[in-house]
Simulated assay, not measured.
Amino acid sequence: MTTKTIKPWLFLMPALIIYLTVIFIPALYTMYLSLFSWNGVSSSKVFVGLNNYSDLFMHDTVFAKALKNNLVWMIGSLTLMVGSGLALALLLNKKLKGRIIFRGVFYFPYVLSGIVVATGWAWLYNPTQGFVNKLLTMLGLEHWTQAWLADPKTALYAVFIAAMWQGIGQPMVLFLAGLQTIPQDPYEAALIDGAKSHQSFWYITLPLLRETFLIVIATTLIGSMKVYDIIYGMTGGGPAESTQVLSTWMVSQTFKFANIGTGSAIAAVLVLICMIVIIPYVYYTTKKSHV
């Protein structure tokens, strides 16, 4: 090999070493552990093949609930969070007084730690001293007050509202960036032709935001599958395992119940689901860049 062919690899080597040691090799080792029954302490591991995977899908009712909750979270994120982010972006893209301040206000929660948000919203949902129940009481809706995080029927949705408050800033900023790249010429031509505002939005804004939508949807999907900290901080997966998602159940199996093989199998399933989202996204973006 000549110096010309070796030099690029020398520049890539530091990043490649970090990637291999921090991500790739641990991921392979996790896949390896998913084939064993091991408590993480004993010196011997019992090879069980794919039994950990079959137990998850055939016998683990909490895993099924966690998978369902991830699906609910994903649908809520793609509809409510993305939709609200787009609506805020459209509003704050207009020439409003103080729009820069409002952009910062709506984006600020996104930079906060998930545990900080979880702690704050847990107090808001406090059944006796929380703001939510006190506000409902002030509005004469005492019959709506309840222990939001202690009821299996409402806990997941209450946590999602907190997550939506925190995460809405990301799609808003991405949509704002996309909106500011759209030229005004198509809108002026549509206005001359007598197009209504909703027609301009449907036939001009949405098509020209296609690339932005692709990024927002991909990041939202991946984020909804990896959600952990805010659920752990607000409910810990309870009550009655009603707010368990794949990541929280993986941590419980691995560190709480010392089922390293089962926890690794859940991690492998989570990686597989994320890859189903990431690979088409990378393929599409790569294909578009070579057109």
Rank of each mutant, 00 (worst) to 15 (best):
I192F: 00
Y110F: 15
S34K: 02
M31I: 12
T285V: 10
A195M: 00
N52V: 00
T154Q: 10
I273M: 11
I100L: 09
H143C: 01
L78E: 14
G83V: 06
G83W: 01
A240K: 08
L179E: 03
Q166S: 02
K288R: 15
T262R: 08
Y157N: 02
D193Q: 12
V132S: 11
A158C: 13
H290C: 04
S252A: 15
D185N: 14
L10A: 13
L80E: 13
Q129A: 13
S242C: 12
P280Q: 06
M1G: 13
L71C: 13
T30S: 14
L208P: 08
G261L: 01
Y187F: 15
L50R: 04
W38C: 03
H143Y: 00
H290K: 06
V48R: 04
F106Y: 15
I204R: 03
T5W: 01
T119G: 07
T219R: 01
A267V: 08
L174S: 01
S242Y: 06
S242N: 05
M58D: 09
T243M: 09
N52Q: 11
N69F: 03
Q244A: 05
G263A: 03
G223Q: 10
N259W: 06
S42F: 03
T128E: 15
H198S: 09
Y283T: 10
I231H: 02
R103W: 09
S44Y: 14
V271N: 13
W165G: 12
M275R: 01
L10N: 01
F47T: 06
G261D: 09
W123Y: 15
L92T: 11
G233H: 03
L92G: 10
V271F: 15
G178I: 05
N133I: 00
S84E: 03
F102S: 13
M13T: 15
V277R: 06
V245N: 05
A189V: 07
M74D: 08
G169N: 02
T79H: 04
L56D: 13
V216E: 06
G261S: 00
P8D: 12
E241T: 14
A27K: 02
A27V: 07
E211D: 15
E241Y: 14
Q170C: 02
P280T: 01
V72R: 08
E211T: 15
K288L: 12
N259G: 03
T61Y: 04
K134E: 14
T3E: 13
S113W: 03
V159I: 11
I115K: 04
L80Q: 01
Y107R: 11
P127N: 08
L124E: 11
I75Q: 10
L12K: 06
A267H: 05
I17G: 01
A189K: 04
C274I: 00
F201D: 12
Q199E: 11
I192R: 02
D185Y: 09
K287D: 00
A190L: 04
T205W: 04
A195N: 14
V132W: 00
L91V: 14
I279W: 05
V41C: 03
K45E: 10
D60Y: 07
N259T: 10
K256A: 10
T61D: 11
F255P: 10
